[in-house]
C-alpha cells in the first residue's frame, strides 16, 4: 500500500552529505515528498527528516540503502511510530481592510500568527503537521494567496530515543510489515488541532 513514510536520518555534518542522500533517492527512483535538514544537539551530526512515498517494500529499501552510506549514522523509520511532525508555512494573502478580520479569525483557530500586515496583504505564519498546514492553505486560498513558502516537515518520535528507534545495527534482519510496538496507525499524532483538521 502506498503511504507517506517519515524517516529520520542522522548524518555526519560534512560537505556533500546532502548530495549523497539526494543522489541516492534520485538514482533509485525513490519519491521524496518533503526533506528538511538541520543541526542536532551534537554539532557533528545533522538530522534529515525525509518523507518518502511508497509501499512497504520501497520503505524497506529506502532504509537499507540509506544505511549503506558511510556518512549515515543512523536511520529511524518513523512510519509506524507515535511521533510529532512539524512544518512551517508563510502565506502572504490578499487582505483589504474589510476582510482582515475574517483572516485573523481563521488564523486564530489554527493558532497561526500574523507576522506582517500592510494595507493590501497579511503574512500568516502557520506551523504544524502537513495536514494542518494544508488545511490552513486551503482556508486562505479563497482570499487570494500572493506568495507562499513552506519548509519540509521535521519529525521526531515520542518517548525515549532508545525506546522508539532501532539503534544502528547492520546485523538486524528486517521484515516487511513488522510492527513490533503495535502502533499500526500511521497517522497517530495527537496534535492539538487534529480534531479540527478531521472536520475539514
Amino acid at each position: 500500500m502506498e503511504r507517506l513514510n517519515p524517516i529520520a536520518v542522522l548524518v555526519r555534518n560534512e560537505p556533500g552529505v546532502l548530495a549523497r542522500v539526494a543522489g541516492l533517492f534520485t538514482r533509485r527512483g525513490f519519491n521524496i515528498i518533503s526533506l528538511a535538514v538541520g543541526e542536532t544537539e551534537d554539532p557533528l551530526v545533522s538530522r534529515m527528516s525525509v518523507v518518502v512515498s511508497g509501499d512497504d517494500a520501497v520503505r524497506e529499501q529506502v532504509v537499507k540503502q540509506l544505511r549503506r552510506l558511510v556518512d549515515v549514522l543512523r536511520v529511524d523509520d518513523l512510519t509506524r511510530q507515535p511521533r510529532v511532525e512539524r512544518g512551517l508555512a508563510l502565506i502572504k494573502v490578499k487582505a483589504p481592510p474589510e476582510r482582515r478580520g475574517e483572516i485573523v479569525e481563521l488564523a486564530n483557530i489554527f493558532r497561526a500568527a500574523i507576522t506582517h500586515v500592510d494595507p493590501r496583504a497579511l503574512v500568516v505564519e502557520v506551523s504544524g503537521n502537513s495536514k494542518k498546514i494544508q488545511a490552513m492553505i486551503e482556508m486562505m486560498r479563497p482570499f487570494g494567496i500572493i506568495e507562499m513558502a513552506r519548509t519540509g516537515q521535521i519529525v521526531m518520535a515520542r518517548g525515549r530515543r532508545e525506546a522508539h528507534g532501532q539503534p544502528y545495527d547492520q546485523n538486524q534482519n528486517f521484515e516487511v510489515g513488522s510492527d513490533p510496538l503495535g502502533f499500526a496507525d500511521p497517522d497517530d499524532d495527537d496534535d492539538d488541532n487534529t480534531n479540527l483538521l478531521r472536520l475539514k
Partner: peptide, 18 residues
Amino acid sequence: VDASEIGKTLAAAVPIVG
C-alpha cells in the same frame, strides 16, 4: 552481507544478513 540486497528484487522468506 549487504542487507539492502535482501528483498531488493524478490521477497525473502528468510532474510539472513551475514
